[in-house]
Design a protein around this nucleic acid. Structure first.
Length: 367
DNA sequence: TGCACCCTGATGTT
DNA sequence: TCATGCATCAGGGTGCA
């Protein structure tokens, strides 16, 4: 895709999405601090997201619920209600689809739109963005923040630049001055770990990052990431907006009631998780070709074990048996105590008509 | 030797 | 500090022509 046509990309990011959905459903929440929680089943858990009232007290995504409760005991604490957020997300995406030729839904609350063919330039693009925001506000009842730029990388950073209910337009010749003062972690793809390593190299801003040579970055981060960092620091990104077929993998993970190394207990949990993964697959009519057992030990290290089948399958038994077998192997190899376990399927394909696919080599298995 | 595929842990985000 | 659940990706390994 090396055509020279300058692109215009719009990135839309719903504001504090989960919490805003709850505000829409429960009007009495407006103005109160709202905290959306993922409970672990053993009393603890983490904050999934919070509204701006809650953020004023330091309650943000990722912190333990216990800490959030200390920061603001009388905030409203609600469990995640994914079904609600999905259906609202669908409403939003449907609106966006009406405005762009290609829509790339990045997650439940974010999407890229290629609007190159829909507008004559950035001024018109800005007007279109305003209209889309207004449309979403009226039809869905939620605010979002938007970024308009010549590529996905900059559009995404731009949508994050002014929040909530923001709109930031970055034209081609404004990219460098826009990026230079930003923190390196404002680059999508640079998180805590990469940020720390860059700090050690004396780099704190994107401007400073752009001064490092590609060679230096490759030495430090390897070929692919090194080149990516160099390009990103200069605002270069050619990746196209692509309609996503669907997810590549589907999984479920849970925290055990208590830490254990008891395989029978773990098998029980695996069966339950397999059921849920199977349900998700079924509703989306997908087959899988590999099964992964995920284990997180008490020291919070993540371990995985994967088995790839000879041919795609779509039945529950295959998930359960594979996951159990993988767990057994894992426990034999690693005598550690587990805190969390998960089951994941990948290599997904559309489950066309096939009934059951029992034809993979699993002959010598103990029953 | 080159390539395709597989497995694993790291990473990002919420 | 206390530490959910989910997805994607790159590096290195492995097997085969």
């Amino acid at each position: 895709m090396s055509n020279n046509q300058p692109r215009i990309i719009l990135h839309v990011d719903m504001d504090y999405f989960f919490a805003q959905c709850e505000e829409r459903e429960h009007l009495e929440l407006k103005g109160k601090p709202v905290v959306i929680c993922v409970y672990s089943g053993r009393g603890g858990g983490a904050v999934s997201t919070s509204n701006y009232e809650a953020r004023k007290f330091g309650i943000k995504a990722g912190i333990p619920i216990s800490r959030a409760k200390k920061l603001k005991p009388d905030a409203v604490f609600l469990p995640v209600n994914m079904e609600l957020y999905r259906s609202i997300s669908d409403e939003v995406m449907e609106i966006l689809r009406g405005y762009c030729t290609i829509l790339e839904q990045e997650s439940v609350d974010e999407a890229f739109c290629d609007i190159t063919g829909r507008v004559s330039g950035f001024d018109e693009a800005k007007l279109l963005a305003v209209r889309i925001k207004e449309d979403i506000r009226q039809k869905v009842g939620l605010t979002c923040s938007a970024g308009v730029a010549p590529n996905k990388l900059i559009a995404k950073i731009a949508s994050d630049f002014q929040k909530p209910d923001g709109l930031t337009v970055v034209k081609r010749d404004e990219i460098l001055q826009f990026l230079v003062p930003l923190k390196i972690t404002d680059l999508t793809g640079v998180g805590k770990k990469t940020g720390e390593r860059l700090n050690e190299l004396g780099v704190k801003t994107i401007g400073e990052l752009s001064k490092l040579s590609a060679d230096e970055l490759i030495r430090e981060f390897g070929q692919a990431k090194g080149i990516w960092l160099k390009q990103a620091s200069q605002g270069i990104d050619d990746s196209p907006v692509v309609e996503r077929e669907g997810t590549e993998q589907i999984g479920r993970i849970t925290t055990l009631k208590e830490d254990t190394k008891d395989s029978n207990l773990i098998y029980e949990v695996i069966d339950g998780l397999s059921d849920e993964v199977y349900k998700k697959l079924e509703t989306r009519k997908l087959s899988f070709k590999s099964v992964t057992f995920v284990a997180i030990s008490t020291d919070f290290k993540t371990h995985t074990k994967t088995h790839t089948l000879g041919a795609p399958a779509k039945d529950l038994e295959t998930i359960k048996e594979s996951a159990r077998r993988l767990a057994k192997l894992f426990l034999e190899e690693h005598p550690v105590t587990l805190r969390r376990v998960g089951v994941r399927v990948a290599n997904l394909t559309e489950a066309k008509g096939q009934k059951t696919l029992g034809n993979f080599e699993n002959g010598n298995k103990k029953r």
